[in-house]
Computed example of a mutant assay.
Amino acid sequence: MVVESDGLLDESSLAAAPLPQEAVHVRLDKPRKDDVADLVFLANNKTVAANLAAMPHPFTLDNGRTLIARAGQVRKNSALFAIRLKSTGRLIGVAKYAAVEEDGVVHVGYWLGEPFWGRGYATEAVHSLVDHAFAYNDIEELQGSCRVTNPASRRVLVKSGFQYRDQAMIRSVGAGGSVPIERYTLERAVWKSLKGWGQGR
């Protein structure tokens, strides 16, 4: 259920655009200082960290504070959101998109705490994240990736309109070495078509 991400989501930000629309069960909004206990509790999980690129394990209180502080930094084509249950407002994970400095490609990433896997929350969050990325930025393509051993993340990406591109290797701090990943892309034109098709039903 965890899409390959840069873990701490360094230099991502909550964009100066409206927040994504609420989904059926979750909403995305700005991480707050009072989220730090939930954030650390959920992120300090070896299984979560092993599915991300740069998330450390153990994930400490300082790591949580750093992530929340960095969420306020403004950067073009980037946004960082807390994933919350609508029913309680509790933080259950993190979702982001961010331009990678080396190539300018905008990557999506997310993770959910293990108690919230398998309920469709990640798919709802990624749908809202993708809509926000394309609606409020001049992004022509989004990329996402998942470990080849993570079929739940693969399903989330496919359900969100992403199409398989290729495989690669990345270093994962949580996994303790290099791991194979599948990479996926979603073009703005495809997103528009999917949005239009959904409205016509």
Rank of each mutant, 00 (worst) to 15 (best):
A98L: 03
D131Q: 03
S5T: 13
A133N: 11
A99V: 04
L112V: 12
P18N: 00
G118H: 15
F59V: 10
V40H: 10
H57I: 15
D35F: 06
V108L: 10
E101A: 12
A23V: 03
V105Y: 02
Q143R: 02
S12M: 05
F134L: 07
M55N: 12
N45V: 03
W111G: 04
D62L: 12
G72V: 11
L8T: 08
A16K: 06
G7T: 03
E11T: 02
D131N: 03
V106C: 07
A125K: 08
Q21W: 09
D138W: 05
H132L: 13
W111C: 02
A37M: 08
L8V: 09
A37N: 03
R65K: 15
A43C: 15
M55R: 14
L91N: 01
L91P: 02
R65D: 11
L61Q: 09
Y136V: 04
P115I: 12
L28E: 04
H127V: 01
A23I: 08
D138M: 06
A71D: 09
L112N: 02
L61Y: 03
E11Y: 04
H127C: 03
A79S: 13
V24S: 12
A71E: 07
L112Q: 10
T123W: 03
S87H: 00
A15F: 08
L80R: 05
K33M: 12
D10Q: 06
P18E: 01
M55W: 08
L9E: 03
G93S: 04
T88L: 00
D29P: 13
A79Y: 01
H107K: 00
N51H: 13
I92C: 10
